[in-house]
Amino acid sequence: MSKPRADAYQEFIKGLWRENPVFAQVLGMCPMLAVTNSAVNALAMGGATFFVLVASSLLVATLKRWIPRQVRISTYVIIIATFVTVTDYTLQALIPEIHKELGAFIPLIVANCLILGRQESFASRQPVRLALMDAAGMGAGFLFALLALGSVREVLGEGAWFGIDLFGPGFEPWVIMILPPGGFLTLGLLLLLFSWIAERRQRLAERLAELETQTR
């Protein structure tokens, strides 16, 4: 039984980078751009999405035998909506200021295609343990992407990170970064960076393989 453990690890790690939901699959963009004008908001949104994704994957993977195929999508949506409602009320009770700032975007996690996509393509076909690892990996990858975007926008747009002033009073903030256009531009550039790194790694791997065949 050593192989399943390696599999579970693989399912977790793939969501972080190789199949990162944002950078590689471009899923779940709507909530991600809207709330990432500061790192704290990004963290709260990422955490909420992480919880909803893991909880619904767990439930869907557990119940998959009893969910009729014809109504599976509606069932997933209702499960997701339930967990989102729970998250919404929890955040409202725990961190009311941040909840107010995120506003309508917490309920909108329901419409995040990433979550429904994982249920349909993974959780409904795999055992509970793998589904859990996959959801955790994807959730962490999404959180990572949100945090990267939120950090860039807050550092450039306010000269601060998590509310801590970084550059002192001489810094003129790039206001555009915390406004909507900044979200589009930053994500575009981050995607560019991601595909550049991916290409570099691929080229490196190719060259290594070439060298190996030559030395043989």
């Binding site: 555009i176 256009p181 575009g188």
Partner: peptide
Amino acid sequence: RLLRGTALNLIIAGILSMAFM
């Protein structure tokens, strides 16, 4: 070539959004 696809579209959307501001 690397910029083609979503990255370019997002940057175009950013400029469009700036115009709408």
